[in-house]
């Protein structure tokens, strides 16, 4: 028989091991990708896979010779930030009105917005492609900014709405009685209080935009192509070059990974903000 203390300790050891296993499984592909990016093409293809090898930077040099990484990276940054800024400008007022001036239709509106996420993107590929084409927006950053904003808006509104819902109505009413206009109420009281939640919404939107591949592959070719399109260009018909593909993937993931890592504290706090209270 285990004492209560022993069984508690056992429980925490088991849970800890489980958490580490899951984390390692999740991290392994990234680890392997980074490892492969430093191998020669022959090492990368070797069976059994090699853990010990002579690291080389030739893949990265090759990529820089063949394509302008910074051109694609800038497109990714511009599209992700552009779409996130516009998305937040729309999501905050929408969530404000739904959270603090609820009507009978609010719940349905929220559900309806979310239901648009259930539609497979490819289902609207043709109409959106044709619309983009007739507007002359093919291969422009603007087209991706607009489409990403529209795709992510339901999630952003939902998230911001959830954070706003946690804020006592009284505080905003106090501001109203203190003489604040609606804009002052939002800017000077609501936004500072919910900045943790807003930060995680921004971060999520940036990540979603950064990683989006379907629309970027279908609507851009070169001038507006983001990093996802750059990766895709390395899986070419003349055969797979694993090492180069890994190198370009590493380059594409690195900025958002680093960004996410720096802000992970904020993200975790934001994501658990509603749960703790």
């Amino acid at each position: 028989m285990l004492t209560l203390k022993q069984s508690r300790r056992l429980q925490s050891v088991v849970l800890g091991a489980l958490a580490w296993t899951v984390a390692l499984i999740l991290f392994f592909p990234i680890f392997w990708m980074i490892l492969t990016s430093f191998k020669t093409e022959i090492d990368a293809f070797a069976t059994p896979p090699q853990l010990i090898f002579h690291p080389t930077l030739e893949n990265y040099l090759h990529i820089q010779e063949r394509s302008d990484y910074f051109h694609f990276a800038w497109n990714s940054v511009a599209i992700a930030f552009g779409s996130t800024i516009i998305g937040m400008l729309l999501a905050v007022p929408a969530a404000y009105s739904m959270a603090f001036h609820e009507t009978r239709l609010t719940k349905q509106t929220l559900l309806w917005m979310l239901s648009t996420k259930m539609l497979p993107a490819v289902g609207v590929l043709m109409p959106i492609y044709l619309m983009t084409k007739s507007l002359g927006l093919l291969d422009t950053k603007l087209s991706l900014i607009i489409i990403y904003t529209l795709i992510n808006l339901p999630i952003m509104v939902w998230m911001v709405y959830t954070y706003f819902k946690d804020i006592p109505k009284d505080i905003l009413e106090a501001a109203r009685l203190d003489g604040a206009t609606t804009v002052q109420e939002i800017v000077r009281v609501l936004l500072p209080i919910s900045k943790g939640g807003l930060a995680s919404t921004v971060l999520l939107s940036l990540i979603l935009c950064w990683n989006e591949a379907f629309w970027s592959l279908n609507l851009t070719s070169s001038s507006a192509a983001p990093l996802t399109a750059l990766i895709a260009s390395y899986s070419s018909p003349e055969g797979l070059f694993w090492a180069k593909l890994s190198a370009v993937s590493t380059l594409a993931c690195a900025p958002i990974l680093i960004f996410g890592w720096i802000s992970q504290k904020q993200l975790v706090r934001g994501l658990s903000f509603g749960a703790v209270k």
Partner: peptide, 30 residues
């Protein structure tokens, strides 16, 4: 008339202080 223009002040059951402001800022906000 909107509450902002009625020139009334209210004390709430939950206090409803602005959590991100100091006491001084809370009092001087209006």
């Amino acid at each position: 008339v909107s509450p902002a223009k009625r020139d009334l002040a209210m004390v709430f059951q939950t206090y409803a202080l602005y959590p991100h402001m100091t006491v001084r800022k809370n009092m001087s906000f209006a």
